[in-house]
Nucleic acid binder design. Structure first.
Lengths: 143, 143
DNA sequence: TTTATTTAAGACTTTATACTCTTAAATCTA
DNA sequence: TAGATTTAAGAGTATAAAGTCTTAAATAAA
């Protein structure tokens, strides 16, 4: 469904958003990697994409790191997925046909197209803000 | 979402089911590969799994090939996906946590778990029989 | 201005998936 | 029985994704 790079990106963004609620500092990638038990090298690569796409702001040097470049409510899971994996999952035919559409459908288009649309809306509507609120409410949440 | 091997498997199974409605012969893998524009070598490999898992019956020699080992109504898209890709897509945490559950959820468990369940039911309920009926009704369907 | 800290960028290695080829085994037909 | 046909099985290759490392650039603080 999602690449591991994309999963890591989402976890990192949730971590950053959670931390940024309290203090507006830059958060070092090293700290994120350590806390989420991810490879610093790999995570650095992934976050560079989110910086390029305008979801993170980065700063070099001591006390440098990354921070959200937009309000939490303006960053959705869809945005992160699009940035890292692309939007194939939300647009592509389940059987891989490039020209599959309502007019020229594949054998399962009628089943899959609405489901794909549903997934799109779900991820588009789920923002970092909403996730943070969910985390606050519950205890025992894995990050 | 699905590997290309799995997509090819589904297309092949739909092709076999469609053909088998009329004649109950074994269908050669070469014929399937030619008609669906797939590599014979690759398709052979894929179909071997479906034979092992009891969804196809195979026969060697002249006029040999493969045919469905069960009624079309008893083979679902879920069965094919499970056989080729495994059921990770229907069971795994979207963020990749192995121990994610209702009791110890990840940050998006509440959003993803019901959706995963929905996808499971959709693919479980969609049988080759149903797909065939859909194909009969429409023209212009890509196989 | 030197040193430490931190991200950026690109090269590199490893692993998994996709894909191909060869040989063996089963079966039919002549 | 010999030859043709077809799947089975396993080895081998190519490509893409995952993961690591090195060097450069920016910045802060001593």
């Amino acid at each position: 469904m999602l690449t591991t790079a994309c999963k890591d990106a989402i976890r990192a963004m949730i971590y950053i958003a959670k931390k940024q609620k309290n203090i507006d500092n830059f958060i070092s990638i090293k700290e994120i990697a350590n806390n989420l038990d991810l490879s610093f090298y790999f995570l650095s690569k992934i976050l560079q994409k989110l910086v390029k796409d305008g979801f993170l702001e980065s700063y070099r040097g001591p006390n440098g790191g990354v921070k959200l470049a937009k309000p939490m409510g303006d960053i959705s899971l869809y945005d992160i997925i699009l940035s890292i994996d692309g939007d194939d999952v939300f647009t592509q035919c389940i059987l891989g046909f490039k020209e599959c559409s309502d007019i020229k459908p594949c054998a399962v288009h009628e089943k899959w197209a609405p489901e794909r649309e549903r997934l799109y809306n779900l991820f588009k509507d789920t923002t970092l803000e909403e996730i943070e609120e969910e985390i606050e409410k519950k205890i025992n949440i894995k990050l």
